[in-house]
């Protein structure tokens, strides 16, 4: 006699009923305004907002990753001043809300009206007003990117520390200098630990970039807000924005799987599928492949 699982049946019924209620509401509730959703899904302002969201995410992640790797290497430096400075940066930028940081950069001209490049405490070579240099877009990129760098530094540091010290010693015994060891031996191995959270951070950044609306940047969410402020179709436009965010995060999740597989080369076992669609695809490809765990 196979083992019976009565509670699985109860749970299945509960989930099915809830799902049916949700579908019913989606179809019959007029407030969703599917007609309006369809009308705005591919409209100019929404697509322009979408593009800006992608640009913001890309720019902020680029700053976050570049500065984050630098901060992580500084943090592991034997020089206490450098590792201390890195620690202080991480402490500050992780310790304050990213929304506050964006608004802060947006208002930076109140603190430093003029910015310039020159010799410290000496003559200024190039200068301009902070207002013209730190536009709202730049404020949003700085706020998001500098905050991301603090989190990313900790991810990279964990990755570097996860690599066995024997690797460094073997590379040293072959006469490799420190920089080469870091680039060719340690970081490629640290990538296995760094890549999965990088995917998470990118997905998270895609959504966090909606905070740029606080700096009046017309990214996806702010574009939707601007439209429903005029036509009062609040719910349909929020649905439009949500559907686009969902579509983008799904794409990123699939991309992440392939990048993880690349950096897992040379290690067994290979990366298991993580997302529901991937599991679905795999189980379709090999019928019954995932049924082993059910005892019979």
């Amino acid at each position: 006699m196979p083992l019976r699982h009565p509670w699985r049946w109860v749970a299945t019924v509960v989930v099915l009923v809830l799902a049916a209620m949700l579908v019913h509401s989606l179809v019959t509730d007029a407030t969703y305004g599917w007609g309006v959703v369809g009308q705005y899904m591919l409209s100019g302002p929404i697509l322009r907002g979408l593009l800006l969201t992608l640009e913001l995410t890309g720019a902020a992640m680029a700053i976050g990753i570049a500065l984050g790797v630098t901060l992580a290497i500084l943090r592991l430096s034997p020089n206490p001043l450098l590792s201390g400075a890195s620690w202080l940066y991480i402490w500050f930028f992780r310790g304050t809300p990213v929304l506050v940081q964006i608004v802060f950069w947006y208002n930076i001209s109140a603190l430093y009206p003029h910015v310039g490049i020159g010799i410290p405490f000496g003559p200024v070579l190039v200068h301009g007003s902070a207002n013209s240099i730190v536009s709202s877009l730049v404020a949003a990129i700085l706020g998001l990117g500098l905050n991301e760098a603090a989190y990313y530094a900790e991810i990279v540091r964990a990755g570097i520390l996860s690599v066995d010290t024997g690797q460094t010693e073997a590379a040293q015994s072959l006469g490799m200098p420190r920089v080469v060891i870091m680039r060719k031996v340690v970081l490629p191995q640290a990538m296995r630990v760094i890549v999965p959270p990088t995917g998470n951070e990118t997905i998270s950044m895609l959504k966090t970039s909606s905070l740029a609306s606080a700096a009046a940047v017309a990214e996806l969410f702010y574009s939707a807000q601007l439209i429903y402020a005029r036509n009062y179709e609040t719910i349909p436009l929020l649905v439009v924005a949500s559907l686009w965010y969902l579509a983008l995060t799904t794409l990123l999740t699939i991309g992440q799987h392939y990048i993880e597989r690349y950096y897992a080369r040379g290690s067994v076992p290979s990366v298991p599928p993580r997302t529901f669609p991937e599991l679905l695809l795999r189980s379709l490809g090999r019928p019954g492949a995932r049924r082993r765990e059910v005892p019979s």
């Binding site: 024997g166 073997a170 031996v185 191995q189 950096y263 040379g266 290690s267």
Partner: peptide, 8 residues
């Protein structure tokens, strides 16, 4: 413990 580079 050999310390070969596992990614190569």
């Amino acid at each position: 413990r050999f310390n070969l580079f596992p990614h190569m």
